[in-house]
Write a protein that binds this DNA or RNA. Structure first.
Lengths: 338, 338
DNA sequence: ATCATCCGTGTAATCGATTCCACGGCTCGT
DNA sequence: ACGAGCCGTGGAATCGATTACACGGATGAT
């Protein structure tokens, strides 16, 4: 592959001049510029980003470590992140943690070895010593969706409190009293937050959230399945299962179907995270929608702010309830069909 | 960030010795090795991958350009690609083309600028001059899922012929005669192949595939919606709509639901690509499943073979029909329920 | 006419690694 | 005891870019 030296030779100038033309430095004569451009064209020259990065100590690359590529929520996030980054002149390298802390750390390390300019991460656990360390060394970093408490790093996320209140109100109005939740890993902030908000909202309606109605999940479908099976085997199973993410809702649906039960007649389902498929499940699933696109864009902007030396901003955007039919409807006027 | 010089100074040796220790070169005394290792530890030193790549002319990184991150088929593919690559000591940079050739080219170019060791592509179009050029310059490259005909590049893909025959046989046995297909872009190999196989299989059953029953799609949900609306407005609408990918099937479902029609009673649906959600749609969707994991792994192995100077192998794996209930069942014995 | 300034350009240092080559000290064979 | 060969080590070149500095020629001010 042609290097800057080849271009210089072909154009009859020094490498310095070639570099100046490429970086649109003002002091280059029109004549020299034209000859360089011609040479670049003739040789199909493209600057070696590796060499450039070594010299300038910047890669114009952002790292994004997401918890799970198979989760539509995170791919939607990844897409908006990449889009905004591209618009700002950055590339994005995505690392998939598969909800495993050690795989997350692996990615963080390789990303750092590649000297990315900044890191966007949605921590798989709330404790990663590596991440803490990275934060301390001053690598530009922003948390998205999940975060590690007590570290001074901007966080871009959706706040589900209000939407969860709306959900509980909706369920209560539908006549449901026994509400269960499948929680995310205790080590994640979103995992805890959603359980707390749910419990709080229930208390506001005079309902209790017994421990038996709190299932431990890990944001993966399988755990949703197991938690739901457990709920269904209870002497008094819940009327509604609320999954703290979309994959666990999928698992819950599996478990319910495996038992031959119907949704919402026998048991209702709701989920955190809205995804296109929820419109088409049988029945369509009531969900809490996050403004994924805005989240991704805000996260990139915050990170680039840090990278380029501007003060960054934490951002919290509201999530919203999307009512569908998976928890039943109009039970107060029974018999009304259509 | 500490560099190799700092380590050398701290350990009281030269940078050459540090480098030897790091690359486990045999001729280093146990004493020197210990001192270097201690210094590495004390300083938290990590080699600069950028500098190393510049010198060795290899990045141990593979580029993967996929057509659409929001398509579960491709994220499943991306996941297995990353996994296998990691196992072989490579990282993967994913570029999302969003089915747009110019965005695909953008990613190919930046990937090349970063001097990735090899490129895995599922071309968004069948013509990209850039891709042809890259192939000609000898950059290690493998096509996955889709390919560009007439270029001497290994292809790793699933063959749907047999599964499509099975599907048509299944539909025929169910009594369906008017079968329509929503095709992918004519510029993609998979797009064409699926239509041809479908037409062929129909002919084998003495059925015709009229032009009006061939909808033009682009592998995105919206196009599936539009094509289906068109089908439904025909004087004699089809009994079955077969979508050439999962997103267009989603769109088809949308369109059908919007008209207030039922699946499969009023019209049936089938799709190429099987994804976890198809189990839970209303009704569960009959689909053709690709061995995504095997595809991704085989693609990485073929690419790494080229990179490391071994002869690569094209791989074709069979897709298989997964029958569910979206096309109806047992219509020959009406009334049978359960 | 003279000197300061500025402009376009080239030379060379530099980024952080790897690796060839040379060198000094040992071991071993004869 | 002496030379050959090996081993551990360091010096320095190198990868492909950017950029500080120097330099010669032209311009402009006085």
């Amino acid at each position: 592959m042609a290097s800057i030296k080849d271009v210089a030779a072909q154009a009859g100038v020094s490498v310095a001049t070639v570099s100046r033309v490429l970086n649109s430095h003002p002091s280059v004569s029109p004549d020299a510029r034209a000859r360089v451009l011609a040479a670049v064209d003739a040789l199909g020259y493209r600057p070696n980003a590796v060499a450039r990065s070594l010299r300038t100590d910047q890669t114009r690359t952002l790292g994004l470590v997401i918890s799970d590529v198979l989760n539509p929520y995170f791919t939607a996030l990844a897409r908006s992140v990449e889009e905004e980054a591209r618009a700002l002149g950055y590339s994005v390298i995505i690392g998939n943690a598969d909800e495993r802390p050690e795989q997350q750390d692996h990615h963080v390390r390789t990303l750092l070895d590649r000297r990315i300019d900044g890191l966007l991460v949605s921590p798989a656990d709330g404790e990663s010593p590596l991440l803490l360390d990275v934060a301390r060394t001053g690598t530009p970093m922003v948390f998205v969706d999940r975060w590690i408490p007590g570290v001074d790093i901007p966080v871009v996320r959706a706040d589900g409190h209000r939407a969860i209140q709306d959900l509980v109100a909706h369920l209560h109005a539908l006549g449901h009293r026994r509400l269960a939740i499948i929680a995310g890993p205790a080590a994640t902030t979103t995992g805890n937050e959603r359980v707390e908000a749910f419990g709080e909202a229930m208390r506001a309606h005079g309902l209790a959230l017994p421990d038996a109605y709190i299932g431990q999940g890990d944001f993966q479908a399988d755990s949703g399945r197991r938690a739901t099976e457990h709920f269904l085997s209870l002497p008094e199973p819940p009327e509604i299962v609320f999954a703290a993410d979309n994959l666990m809702a999928l698992g819950a649906l599996d478990a319910i179907r495996a038992r031959g039960l119907r949704v919402p007649e026998d048991i209702g389902i709701a989920a955190f995270d809205d995804i296109p498929w929820f419109v088409h499940t049988g029945p369509p699933i009531t969900a809490i929608a996050q403004p994924t696109g805005d989240l991704g864009r805000a996260a990139v902007r915050a990170l680039v702010d840090i990278v380029e030396g501007r003060p960054p901003q934490s951002v919290t955007l509201p999530a919203t309830l999307v009512v569908r039919s998976s928890c039943g409807e109009r039970t107060s006027t029974p018999g009304s069909n259509e």
